[in-house]
């Protein structure tokens, strides 16, 4: 995985350098062009990434291995689901459902605790973001139909 990350870094650096020189110009009319800063720092990424790659390949030290924990990615997946829920149901209903589903089925709290917590949290989000800070919440695709 370490090597994969380094390869991604090298690819990103090469794209930034190529675009910086060819498209945005490193130096233009006797002064720095749009590619000046990106090319310099992409080159730095490239040099450092290659150094890390060499170290990873040639190092004889015992490497710490990272064990993939699928549980860690549950919040990210839930956030993606939450994002889609917002687009379909709007923010308020999504907050309530999101919190309820998580607390009841992932954290395994009782229905009473779950519902009290969800109602309070929805009121908190509505009170702070919508009423006080006047953030325009999306109403959601379903509600727009009516």
């Amino acid at each position: 995985m370490d090597i994969l990350i380094v390869i991604i870094e090298i690819i990103v650096a090469l794209v930034w350098i190529q675009q910086g020189i060819v498209r945005y110009q490193f130096w233009n009319d006797g002064k720095p062009g749009g590619g000046f800063v990106p090319v310099i720092f992409a080159s730095l990424v490239l040099i450092a990434a290659v150094a890390i790659l060499m170290r990873e390949v040639f190092s004889k030290k015992n490497k710490e291995t990272y064990t993939f924990q699928p549980g860690a990615f549950v919040p990210a997946a839930a956030a993606v689901l939450g994002g889609f829920m917002i687009q379909v149901l709007g923010i308020l209903l999504s907050v309530f459902l999101f919190n309820t589903i998580w607390m009841r089925f992932l954290s395994r709290y009782s229905w009473v605790k779950t519902l009290i917590s969800s109602v309070l949290f929805t009121a908190f989000i509505y009170g702070i973001f919508r009423m006080w800070l006047r953030v325009p919440f999306p109403s959601g695709f379903i509600f727009q139909l009516f």
């Binding site: 919040p75 956030a79 939450g82 999101f98 607390m103 992932l106 954290s107 949290f121």
Partner: peptide, 9 residues
């Protein structure tokens, strides 16, 4: 278990 979904949202 309570604060995690709140932080995410």
């Amino acid at each position: 278990g309570i604060i995690a979904p709140m932080i995410v949202f």
